[in-house]
C-alpha cells in the first residue's frame, strides 16, 4: 500500500472536550504495523456535531469516511481494516 491513510481528528471545541483532547498523542501510540501507513492530523471543526444523526462526538475522518464517538481503539481498527482490506484478504471488513 503506497498511499497513506489519512486520519483527521476533529479538534473543534465540542470534539476536543468530549474526548479528542485525549487522542492527540495517537500518532505515537499507534502500533508499529500501522505507523508507516498512517498520517494523523488534527482538523478544524468538521461541522458535523450539530446534527444528532451523525452520532456522538468526538468525530474523525479516516480516508474521508466519517466516524463518531471515536477512541484510540476505534481509529486503529478503522486503519487496520483499510490496510488489511487493501492487501486483498479480509476484504469484507472494509
Amino acid at each position: 500500500m503506497d498511499e497513506l491513510i489519512d486520519v483527521e481528528i476533529c479538534t473543534g471545541t465540542t470534539c476536543f472536550v468530549m474526548g479528542a483532547g485525549h487522542l492527540l498523542n495517537l500518532a505515537e501510540e499507534l502500533p508499529a504495523r500501522l505507523r508507516p501507513h498512517v498520517n494523523i492530523c488534527g482538523s478544524h471543526c468538521l461541522g458535523v456535531c450539530g446534527d444528532p444523526r451523525n452520532g456522538r462526538p468526538p468525530f474523525a475522518r479516516v480516508n474521508r469516511m466519517l466516524l463518531s464517538n471515536v477512541s484510540a481503539e476505534s481509529l486503529i481498527e478503522a486503519c487496520d481494516r483499510i490496510l488489511i482490506g487493501s492487501k486483498g484478504d479480509r476484504c469484507d471488513a472494509v
Binding site: 479538534t11 473543534g12 471545541t13 465540542t14 476536543f16 472536550v17 468530549m18 478544524h44 471543526c45
Partner: peptide, 11 residues
C-alpha cells in the same frame, strides 16, 4: 461543557 452549550469554538 459551558462552551459547547454556548456554541463557542475556541479556535
Amino acid at each position: 461543557a459551558i462552551l459547547i452549550a454556548a456554541g463557542i469554538d475556541v479556535q
